[in-house]
Nucleic acid binder design. Structure first.
Lengths: 190, 190
DNA sequence: CGAAAATTTGACATGACTCAACTGGAGTGG
DNA sequence: CCACTCCAGTTGAGTCATGTCAAATTTTCG
């Protein structure tokens, strides 16, 4: 719980009492590597703050190929927003890539906190805002970079993830096949 | 101004007085087709609500090729968030694709409204939240669809934009060359 | 240790790009 | 209102980036 508290405090100013109530609305959950936090088509009734470990959010193409859309490690969030907000079946699946501890919050509690506490409203706004910036930049990359450039960008910006995440998942995140990523890695760097 | 008022009202409940103050912080501006609202490297001191017309937000690759990241038509927003929030030089350029009327708001005024009025805070949160959903889905598309599938998706979801926006700009948004888009269009639909 | 999964390697296929030439419309100036 | 230019769109030939498939090799983990 401490990590969440710190994360919120780092973004907004919030009273101790409010923070206490906020905390009370989260539940700690544990997932083993490869377990699912959410499955495509299931109901997306909670979102997750990752305390330790790592999860991937992915879609499954019609040919059955999986495409990683987001990796969430410690101090970041994971969830199927689309389904969560519109109470619609999940479009994404979320799976633990390591043994992972999350703080889970239900839709009702989330809505409650957002409505009752401006500090929490502000916090969630900042989360979304940061996501928008990151996602726009990711799209810009996909439009303007080649596969190799995207890989090098990833290397430079997330060197820690390279260590932790299987190559096939990174390939999927970059939008290329594992075979092609393998080939890129073994090319001389120019 | 009326469109902005309606848009805000459609998303959050807000008092008439607050709305009046909100309105007072916006300035109407007019741009002719091809004029720039913001240029790469310039200072991103305002964001724009599009009342009429259409603008594109794009990046310029090192080879000089432009890549459209967002189209904003009536009742939607445009702006370089990255630069706006971090007071950094603009990463994107924003250009009118038609004669366009926008309501512009400065960083100071935006911050003021967000800090003083929870209703405006809530409104801006919803804007970001919707953007996150749309952007994630766009990334998912880029990962799992071929160029042709992306084009057909665009056709189905934004038939009105097809009418208004030059093909070369749509090609750029889809991440393909104008020549290739032209070829796709002339293929038999399967 | 042994089975299953991840990564590598290579031959071949193809989607998408480049470049260059051509066509046709939209805007402009005389 | 015509003639002209210029830009958007098309077409086609040749090429390159990336994907597919299949087999070999390495790593992971029970």
């Amino acid at each position: 719980m401490e990590k969440l508290v710190q994360h919120i405090k780092s973004q907004v100013s919030i009273s101790a009492e409010t923070m206490k109530i906020v905390q009370s609305r989260f539940t700690e959950k544990h997932y083993k590597k490869k377990e699912y936090l959410l499955r495509f088509g299931g109901s997306s009734t909670e979102v997750f703050f990752v305390s330790t470990g790592c999860v991937r959010t992915y879609i499954t193409g019609f040919n059955g190929v999986e495409h990683n859309v987001v990796f969430s490690v410690e101090n970041w969030w994971a969830g199927d927003l689309q389904g969560f907000i519109h109470k619609a079946p999940a479009t994404y699946s979320i799976q633990a890539l390591e043994n992972t501890t999350v703080l889970s919050i239900s839709q009702e509690n989330w809505t409650f906190l957002v409505n009752e506490f401006p500090a929490f409203l502000a916090y969630s706004r900042i989360l979304f805002r940061n996501s928008v910036i990151a996602l726009e930049s990711r799209i810009a990359q996909h439009l303007s970079f080649t596969a190799k450039e995207r890989y090098q960008y990833f290397l430079n910006h997330y060197p820690n993830l390279i260590q932790r995440i299987a190559q096939k998942h990174i390939a999927s995140y970059l939008g290329i096949t594992p075979e092609f990523l393998s080939m890129l890695r073994n090319q001389k760097m120019e």
